[in-house]
Nucleic acid binder design. Sequence first.
DNA 1: TATTAGCACTGAAAGATTATAAGTGCTAAG
DNA 2: CTTAGCACTTATAATCTTTCAGTGCTAATA
Lengths: 329, 329
Amino acid sequence: MNERQKILLKEIVESYIKDAHPVGSKALVQKLKCSSATIRNEMSALEEMGYLEKTHTSSGRVPSEEGYKYYVDNIMKPKELNGEEMLKLQTIFSNNNLVLSDAIRECMAIISEITNYTSIVLGKDSEYNTLKQLNIIPIDDKKVVALLVASNGHVENKQVLIPEDVDVKEVVKVSEIINKQLIGTPIGEVPSKLEFEIKPRIAVIIKEYESVYSMFQNVFNDFAERNGNVFFGGRVNMLKQPEFDEVDKVKNIMEKLEDYEVVKRIESNDEGVNIYIGEESEFDKDVTVVKTSYKANGEEGTLAIIGPTRMEYDKVVTLLEFLKSQIER
Amino acid sequence: MNERQKILLKEIVESYIKDAHPVGSKALVQKLKCSSATIRNEMSALEEMGYLEKTHTSSGRVPSEEGYKYYVDNIMKPKELNGEEMLKLQTIFSNNNLVLSDAIRECMAIISEITNYTSIVLGKDSEYNTLKQLNIIPIDDKKVVALLVASNGHVENKQVLIPEDVDVKEVVKVSEIINKQLIGTPIGEVPSKLEFEIKPRIAVIIKEYESVYSMFQNVFNDFAERNGNVFFGGRVNMLKQPEFDEVDKVKNIMEKLEDYEVVKRIESNDEGVNIYIGEESEFDKDVTVVKTSYKANGEEGTLAIIGPTRMEYDKVVTLLEFLKSQIER
DNA sequence: TATTAGCACTGAAAGATTATAAGTGCTAAG
DNA sequence: CTTAGCACTTATAATCTTTCAGTGCTAATA
């Protein structure tokens, strides 16, 4: 691709991102300093190469998925953030009462507001995240609250009814065994340890051990695959984009966002900021997902922005990179 | 309103609920056993009275807000549930591992699925709900997890950074004082007791008591006005209704659903099932909110269904009543 | 050889026109 | 009081026309 074609692609992508209208040759004579005929020639070359598309035979050009990709990989320059926005994000990190994961969520909510895209924070239990404590708090003689605290500070709580034939005291006793035995175990390994190390031990001391065991199994399973660890910011922003003007399309995307299985797949392990445009976003041909992972103080997870393919890539990438740098300080 | 007019209104409302088409006079000759001209006369009487509307001069009739209200208050009969649906809901309650609040949420999710409307469960801290326990669990020397357990089994957890100049041990000490002093205090009164009874006491033993106090204040404030107590089921269902075919309209409604202040206003204290049609729904002129309160084992809250004014009122009311009866057993 | 002016052509979008169908209200007769 | 009959209304859909923003191609030009 020659230099002029690059400039042309850049201008087309940026103009289309800006106002969602197909770009015609005349609109670019100023920028390219050549006639519209020349631009048309280059445009049709770029179309040949697969970087541009027409909405109909005589319309202006629109970037194709490939076009966006090329733009993102080879043309786009990081956009410097405006001071106000940077300040907003920094202020949150300088608030000392705020714990990292809350700060991240607040920042992503702000980024959603700034950009009008939807943001997602996907927490992850690292393999270094271990069981710190299990508390059983009796509420009445039928119900206890099980509290699980992980070494990274995450807490899961679950109310459980104790089986008819079991005494609260026995449940507490089991929890003490678990505490002695399993503290320090990586969260992922807890269920299996529970089965092979704890179950036999409680079988000895409690008659109805099956039901007690399955009660704890229940609690820990929830912990291991907990869905509570997802945060959404600006979910409604999706509805503000002109490409999502059909309720049906929005419905499809929203349904995917409600489906934990789909959202979980966004998870990233890549240090860098990655961009999934169109079909590869797995949401819709007109959707882009920008994501990166973060890691700090034992906290670990994914930051993602989801919006139209016609996205302000430079801004989003810069914002995510900036937030990431703040997190890792 | 004479008998025939009642029947007419019933048929029009039900037909419109069923397929969202304005109802013409001819379509009803079968049901009313009189000529279309007679029906037209009655229709125009009902329109005069404000129960029907036309979408344009020569269209069929559509129920007005008043029409729905009259239908709901004076005509509608509770619909008997089909066995399969009843069974689904009952099964959830017969699952013994499931705690009441979780069962309620699952049921409302199912009701959303059955009806294609959106469901909301709004928990409420009753005045009988008291502080059961405060745990401080040190994560590292800068961070602790504060766990608050209420007498109804609800748990709130918050990670907090301890102020620079304060030692973890002091924080734990304060938590012990709070535990001794405040257990059994209704949640709503905790913040003020904290200020007037606890603050003076910790001032004596800790130098930097201001920052420790504000830390706890922070934690308890969150507990008192916690937003985590809202559950949504079938949020996307809104998008399936033909009256919500404009993205803009959907956007407005969705924005309100995201706004805790608005959602909180749904809260009901009424034993019965109440229906708020159109403007009085506070969401949109085409939205209806059906809601009722529940109370059982110290759990208390509101069940609400939100959908189009063109709602299957009989079914929704029956479902809510059935669920309520299950809860209160 | 690369650029550009010129021009015929294309298709979407918007407006005008018409036909159709589903409904109404009103009148007059049963 | 009910109903048949009919003129009238309006949305909806289909067809046609115009306009306009764009194209691609050709031939002339630097």
